[in-house]
């Protein structure tokens, strides 16, 4: 299979079940909503060491937010409910509550309830005020610029982490340009985030390492500088590989993000993209398999 001259490997991305929530962060204007959301989703590229994977899903118009102010929808993914609760509390508490003019709301109506402002309210030191409208409880926590308003609970749903595809290009510049095109297209798909910096990861990993203390290490079969040293997956003309990792609320969202991302990466003339592949562990670890050729049919 080829798209615009780019070979699509007959392979699949292997993904794993995760727990997720969507939060809506609002503020006085888009700038401050963005500050809060970016801080909250910082250092959240991989559950391996960050505790969660998080990112900005999309910008929200004032008409789309509960308090009628500019907002940002954020998705958080973890491996367990307990960890999700901890990450919400720490990240909203340290990054949203602290951000001027901010407020934070649940972004999902369905799913298992999980604390959002329920514990953060105690920052009010007894001066916090509860307001319950239409079955939703909000906490008003007095802060130095007025009040931090936070919905008491959000919703946790089953989700999927680790959808991915690899862009194999003739050089670093071509790989980066293709990845940037893919991310721009994928950011229009609801229900997904690409948690790595700029949505792109250059340090694809494999399970295990020669060092006993490491659970993951560089995916040496896709490192172009090792082509002469290992049984490389790369042909002689491949000079750089970049990966896009996708976390999504459901398989359909990841399918769609993968589809639009690959098509955008392969778009244009002289794009320098040679192959599209995907990362997996032979299919034995993750129950979700995103087959590239089926998605791109």
């Amino acid at each position: 299979m080829k798209i615009n001259g780019v070979a699509i490997d007959n392979t699949f991305a292997e993904a794993f079940p995760m727990k997720a929530t969507r939060l809506v962060v609002t503020a006085y204007n888009e700038t401050w909503a963005e500050h809060a959301a970016r801080a909250m989703t910082g250092f959240a590229t991989s559950v391996i060491a960050c505790g969660c994977e998080a990112g900005i899903e999309r910008r929200l118009k004032p008409s789309e937010t509960p308090d009628g102010r500019p907002g940002i929808a954020v998705l958080l993914f973890t491996m367990s409910k307990k960890e999700l609760g901890k990450q919400i509390q720490n990240r909203v508490g340290q990054c949203v509550l602290t951000s001027p003019t901010s407020a934070c709301f649940a972004g999902l109506d369905e799913g298992e309830p999980i604390a959002l402002g329920k514990n953060l309210r105690y920052f009010g030191d007894g001066h916090q005020i509860s307001k319950k409208f239409g079955g939703k409880r909000y906490w008003r926590v007095p802060v130095m610029d007025g009040e931090f308003v936070c919905e008491e609970m959000t919703r946790m749903v089953k989700a999927i982490g680790g959808g991915n595809f690899l862009i194999l290009a003739r050089d670093q510049a071509a790989a980066l340009a293709a990845a940037e095109r893919a991310i721009v297209a994928m950011q229009t798909v609801p229900g997904v985030i690409m948690p790595f910096p700029g949505g792109v990861v250059r340090s694809g990993s494999k399970v295990g390492s020669k060092y006993k203390t490491l659970s993951a290490s560089t995916n040496h079969l896709f490192c172009p500088t090792l082509k002469g040293a290992v049984d490389s997956e790369l042909s002689a003309d491949v000079g750089a590989v970049l990966e896009i990792v996708i976390d999504g609320l459901d398989t359909a969202s990841i399918d769609e993000a993968t589809r639009v991302g690959i098509r955008a990466a392969c778009r244009g003339r002289n794009h320098g993209v040679l192959r599209i592949s995907a990362g997996n562990y032979g299919g034995s670890l993750g129950p979700y398999h995103f087959k590239l050729r089926d998605i791109l049919k």
Binding site: P66, D67, G68, R69, A103, K131, F133, G134, Y138, R140, G146, E147, V149
Partner: peptide
Amino acid sequence: TFALTIMPLLAQY
């Protein structure tokens, strides 16, 4: 005197 964020939530309800 303040612009309280809770007011739009009340109006929305």
